[in-house]
Design a protein around this nucleic acid. Structure first.
Lengths: 368, 368
DNA sequence: TTGAAAGCGCTAACAG
DNA sequence: CTGTTAGCGCTTTCAA
């Protein structure tokens, strides 16, 4: 219960103006406990090396003085840190929430902190942030997506070269990508796009549309679009591509629905870049008495919570978001424990068929 | 464009086993540029003090060597850091997303990083995290909510005592709270609850319900509930309280709707702890042909994006989420620039009336 | 089981 | 405008 101000100063320089903030240091604790700095240091890192009696004494002192270890100093001295830097396009985006959660939990149990940085989709900004983040000498780096400048990529490769594990999440390359040099945990976006097209075609549609998101420069959504178009073409089915207006995705979905019906009346099925867009379209359709899926089948992407609550339920593609986080954590931890670069992990997307794409006949059997 | 592997080592100690990671240091840059460390240091912090020609030379060396400043060392030496620690109950929760966004942006433009930590609602865990976070000697601390142990509170007060700005967001105390010692930026949750009750009563309801969230131990949602009940009682209106089952909020809302109609048939209006619950109830009602708002009026909280897209639109309370983040950033920055504790900020919640609570008559005029 | 000495990479303070 | 000196608070050898 000693007030912190009572904490001993360096005995020699007690009156000299101390530079650091006034918090008690290892030295202060040691002084009070009647040992040396290193003993207090050991108390935290390997108490089993100390005499039980010493442990006891130090613990009490630490508590009474209110000592909090200075991480910066520790990491500077040891040359290694317990921070895992994570770069995510948008911290606030629900899509990444589960991934971040899984990653954070996985790391925390092993005693690592997560330095989370939202980078936006502008590659240029990413480079700057990456540089800042490297200044923390992170124990590992987790980045999202392929879309980055050559300089940024070089920074990552250098970091890995210097022994820092670098893992890229949310993506998995189909072919040789110039970025495949990094360990990747994610799913194949192109294949996901193909999956979407295949489903619409399988359910009998000959005129389909793909609605791209208007807000993102994220290459991954474009890969899905390309996969969709490619698959449709392969099956001899016509596919038109529309781009949703920027702004609120629910609004965008509704607007695009109108465009679609007006400009492309022959189209009978539409796939969307994400469930928010599809939801907006579905709600708009219901409000205007457009029969889903009879007049128009709707297929989303991402399996957001709302999707199965809509009427009809929104068919969609389930992405392994939480799993990506968990596996990324495991991968990073493994890599840090032994310096062997771990393998990539390709996770599966699964199609979830609900009312919005089922032919009317089958829909009867679906429970509400 | 020199490959970073060319980066100079300490010329003297090139072969000696260096303790730190192998990255180039100020010393390395200085050596190559033909100046001393401090000059390179100044190049980063106050280049205007250097001769233009020196600036040029240092810049080139920095680039060719691939130097990245070591933040830990810098902060240790200077005693101040550029990190603002932020503790949020749940990083993945959409409610906090906008706040975090606003905070992060506000801080970034002033050159601060945000160390974001998700603490969950368990007070015990918060204390541990707080302790870890303090080890980073943050330039400021932003915490969420009142719910914490005495020890955690003491840590915060100590930190403030040591000159670290501490700001609490998302809450604002009505009466004297034992935690009111911290600067607070938020809104009055009790008043928000009262607002909700008042609206339902104003629109003619005599039997109302409040549906609490089943997943959180967050005191703030309980404050809203208490405000609701208190207001109802004051107006002589009966209010029953239900608690949604844990798990998916949309499911929970649907389930609670059934309970409500079965067990409390006289009730004609229900307020929900958040828009997700209310949305679940609304969708469920539509699926079962229950007239909203004629049979049952529904009122949410939080003004989530989906709410205005439902049919009927979900009446709700708009909370100043983004504003909280922005103001918190401004407050923290102000406090760091001059050591005068800034004032609390009480922000307003506003009622947003849509179809789900409007009497049938007025609803005719509303645009779809 | 504990200690002494020597830095980690950087910046504050005071010269020149 | 640039340099010198002395740490920041901790951990790493190596010794006792």
């Amino acid at each position: 219960m000693l007030p912190p101000s009572t904490a001993a100063q360096h005995p020699v320089a007690a009156k000299k103006t101390r530079r650091g903030h006034g918090r008690p240091t290892l030295y202060d604790v040691a002084e009070v406990a009647g040992v040396t700095q290193i003993t207090v240091s050991r108390f935290f890192r390997s108490p089993e090396l100390l005499a039980p009696e010493t442990v006891q004494r130090v613990r009490q002192t630490v508590e009474s003085v209110g000592y909090v270890p200075n991480l910066q100093a520790g990491q500077l001295a040891s040359g290694r840190s317990r921070v895992v830097a994570t770069l995510i396009p948008n911290v606030g985006h629900s899509v990444f929430a589960k991934t971040v959660q899984g990653l954070a939990e996985g790391l925390r149990v092993s005693g690592y902190e997560m330095l989370l940085t939202s980078k936006g989709y502008q590659p240029q900004r990413e480079e700057r942030q990456l540089r800042e983040v490297l200044g923390w000498s992170p124990a590992a780096i987790v980045v999202t997506g392929l879309h980055r400048t050559a300089a940024a990529q070089q920074l990552l490769l250098d970091a890995r070269g210097a022994g820092t594990p670098v893992v890229e999440i949310w993506d998995y390359p189909t072919r040789k990508t110039k970025h495949r040099e990094l360990v990747q945990i994610g799913f194949n976006h192109r294949a996901a796009g193909q999956l979407m097209a295949a489903h619409l075609i399988d359910t009998g549609h000959q005129h389909v549309a793909y609605v791209d998101s208007g807000v993102t420069e994220d290459v991954r959504v474009h890969l899905r679009r390309d996969g969709f178009i490619g698959q449709a073409r392969k099956c001899g089915v016509q596919a038109v591509v529309l781009t949703a207006p920027p702004g609120d995705a629910l609004d965008g979905g509704g607007i695009i629905l109108k465009h679609l019906l007006d400009l492309h009346p022959r189209i009978t099925a539409a796939a969307f870049a994400n469930d928010h867009l599809a939801t907006g379209a579905l709600l708009q359709a219901r409000a205007h008495g457009i029969a889903i899926p009879e007049r128009l089948a709707l297929l989303g992407f991402g399996d957001f919570p709302i999707s199965r609550h809509l009427h009809p339920g929104l068919s969609t593609v389930h992405t392994p978001t939480a799993e990506i986080g968990r596996i990324a954590a495991a991968t990073v931890l493994e890599w840090m424990s032994r310096p062997v670069q771990p393998a990539n992990a390709a996770l599966d997307c699964t199609l979830i068929v609900r009312g919005s794409t089922k032919p009317a006949l089958q829909r009867e059997n679906a429970k509400p």
